[in-house]
Design a protein around this nucleic acid. Sequence first.
DNA 1: AGATAAAATCAAGCGCGCATGCTGGTTTTG
DNA 2: CAAAACCAGCATGCGCGCTTGATTTTATCT
Lengths: 198, 198
Amino acid sequence: MTAPQQERSKATRLRLLEAAVDCLAEKGWSGTTVAIVARAAGVSRGAAQHHFPTREDLIAGALEFATETQLIENRARAATLPEHGLTRVEAVVNMLVDIYVGPYFRAALQVWVAASADPSLHARVQPLEARLGRAIHHVAVELLRADERKPGVRETIQGTLDMARGFGLATVLGDDSARRRPIVRQWARVLAGVLGEQ
Amino acid sequence: MTAPQQERSKATRLRLLEAAVDCLAEKGWSGTTVAIVARAAGVSRGAAQHHFPTREDLIAGALEFATETQLIENRARAATLPEHGLTRVEAVVNMLVDIYVGPYFRAALQVWVAASADPSLHARVQPLEARLGRAIHHVAVELLRADERKPGVRETIQGTLDMARGFGLATVLGDDSARRRPIVRQWARVLAGVLGEQ
DNA sequence: AGATAAAATCAAGCGCGCATGCTGGTTTTG
DNA sequence: CAAAACCAGCATGCGCGCTTGATTTTATCT
């Protein structure tokens, strides 16, 4: 055959990861069983067991996959940002917020919260979260063209990211977009002030 | 006996709720089984079943208990706040943040995240969250002596609360207090500026 | 090159452990 | 004596991990 099974294997593995991420975002931690994920991916449970020996392997793999996908999407979107001024700041904040209210974050949230009580999972997840956090911070600084040497700038950006995280958390309880909009707008104004003062 | 069983019943019920909250905060959603909670409360599983027919009843009750306890503690702590000026603003922000990094919030977080994929639980939990959110916002406005008619004031306070929520979320992945402190300090400065400008 | 061994991929079934909910029975209170 | 609070055991269901077996691809030897 022209298609080596190596490719096919990678494909099913990827389908499993995608299905796991979707399942986590939709059905939550307890609702994400290997059987359900396997069925959603269109493979048997044995196949899933082969690629990911344990459930924890599957979940951790899904989180890693979601993390990297998130970063890639960010880079793509960063190129489409508007010019300068306040509208750019607001656009950046909106983009950061969108990261934390999207499906990838919802999936990650389930894993993080579950990992807080699961030492073994925590050990695998914590470095991923740290890496993602640093990466997003770096992106934020770059897109805002911020000078972190100015006092307060770094802290305010960190606070902005934490606010976005808070939005993400609020979103799991229900659609929050209407409440978010004016807050983001006001926050962008304040942030622009901090960035440009003096 | 001098102690009517009504009191004893209320007492065991309360012990169950306390144990459930602790268990949620420590062992997470999946780790909180009725058997474990009952043992921690010092009662048999059958007794727990008697007071809370279903597990969902127990969890929902625990969340409600945690919510009210949280509000009561807030009122107590609000009386001990310092005088005026920036230190007061910083103290208020610190107090708000402490709400979201405390054990009650950790317990609530587990329930909220789980409820996002459980419609039946979601229906019972969502109004609680809304009530708590409004209450905390009200407390914040009052303690900051903010004039919400001023443009941007209301939005900035909401953003502050969302940032605090984000801190709480970051805390489940590991102790974050060292990172938080400078952010809170800086944000208090900014918040004071927004509150007092013009 | 051809054949056979070895390894990888996928499918299906089994058993263990555990949590929930229910039911019957016992003690305490009014 | 009636009712409520409390306790012990049973039964069902389900998710996980493991084992077995079939099919395909890759590697090795003659």
